[in-house]
């Protein structure tokens, strides 16, 4: 059940044109209660300079996907199938030492809770330096301490921090400053892809905005592809070029941000967008009826059918829809568009 679009893209032009191609990725957690399919056949492709936002309810598998992209899936999790092409190289096949080299160099993570993502007993600058040092290809080219200091200061300046911050310990920084440090680390080796897992979730609205602006600026400077994971549709809409919607481990829709907001295809996306608070109309807040499924016992057919307002009896509860391109640049998995092909 490979996605046609992404898979074809991977084979034909991926290596040259795309920074990142994910092909039918499946990540499962083997728990005593059963197998949790946290990422269940996700396919997507990212060009350099592209900003993709991934949204979805809590537990829909966003972080699991992010960790799989870094190839940091931990037991009981396991990448059971699929491919991840990073700059044309399939990282699911790499040995750990080779993969270690790629982390930070090619793909970097801006973590979810930047609050605790820094080593509490190490000064900020050393936490920037050690990443650089451990990726020096040739020992003879190890930068001297003066050069490293310079680089740290430049990186700090790029994320809007003063050099003094380098000498501080994490507990002496505010949440926003910590998140900036995390970004400085992420860009220290100019990666091809930056994965940001809810980089602003613990911050207040004003700081959130500033952080997103900085992230955007850095991304432009590097021409890196960014995957931004978040709950907040508003923040995401401002930042991204494209939006992917995840539901129960599956990507149910992917498309340009403008189109997703004006004309969502998948019923779940529609509900997500309708449930956004709207200042002008001040209409009543509409939630999404029902609860997200437990990934242990997924509904038959389309996983969304028990909560779906446009549910087609006889089809949706029996047949799982294909994820396919239904219009140019628009992909979704929904029986409503089954016959429609681009």
């Amino acid at each position: 059940m490979t996605s046609l679009t992404a898979a074809t893209a991977a084979r034909s032009s991926a290596s040259s044109e795309h920074s990142l191609v994910v092909e039918d990725l499946r990540v499962h957690y083997d728990t005593p209660e059963g197998v949790i399919k946290a990422v269940d056949g996700v396919s997507l492709a990212l060009k350099p300079g592209e900003r993709l936002a991934l949204v979805g309810e809590s537990g829909s598998g966003k972080s699991t996907l992010a960790m799989a992209l870094m190839r940091l899936t931990k037991a009981p999790g396991r990448i059971v199938a699929g491919h991840i092409y990073l700059g044309g190289k399939d990282i699911t096949l790499l040995e750990e030492p080779e993969m270690r080299q790629l982390r930070l160099n090619e793909i970097a993570l801006v973590p979810q809770g930047a609050m605790n993502s820094l080593n509490p007993v190490m000064r900020v600058k050393h936490q920037i330096i050690d990443g650089i040092l451990d990726h020096v290809a040739d020992r003879k080219q190890t930068p001297d301490s003066h050069e490293l200091e310079e680089r740290v200061n430049r990186l700090l300046a790029r994320v809007g921090l003063s050099p003094e911050v380098g000498r501080m310990f994490p507990h002496e920084l505010s949440g926003g400053m910590k998140q900036r440090v995390a970004m400085a680390i992420a860009i220290s080796l100019s990666p091809r892809v930056i994965v940001a897992d809810e980089p602003t979730s613990a911050l207040d609205v004003v700081v959130q905005r500033q952080i997103m602006q900085t992230l955007g600026r850095l991304q432009q400077g590097l021409d890196a592809a960014v995957i931004l994971i978040g709950h907040d549709m508003g923040l995401v809409a401002q930042f991204a070029n494209r939006v992917g919607v995840m539901y129960a481990g599956k990507l149910v829709e992917l498309g340009p941000v403008q189109q997703i907001f004006t004309e969502p295809l998948h019923p779940y996306t529609k509900l997500l967008i309708e449930s956004l608070p709207n200042l002008e109309e001040k209409k009543k807040f509409i939630g999404i009826p029902g609860l997200p499924p437990t990934l242990l016992r997924l509904p038959s057919g389309c996983v969304f059918h028990p909560r779906c307002p446009s549910f087609i009896k006889g089809t949706c509860e029996t047949v799982a829809p294909h994820y396919q391109e239904v219009r140019p640049e628009r992909e979704t998995s929904c029986h409503l568009y089954a016959g429609v092909r681009a």
Partner: peptide, 14 residues
């Protein structure tokens, strides 16, 4: 289990 350990690995440290 702590975040900074995950981040240390994400940094590709030895």
């Amino acid at each position: 289990g702590s975040d900074f350990m995950v981040q240390a690995e994400a940094k590709g440290l030895k």
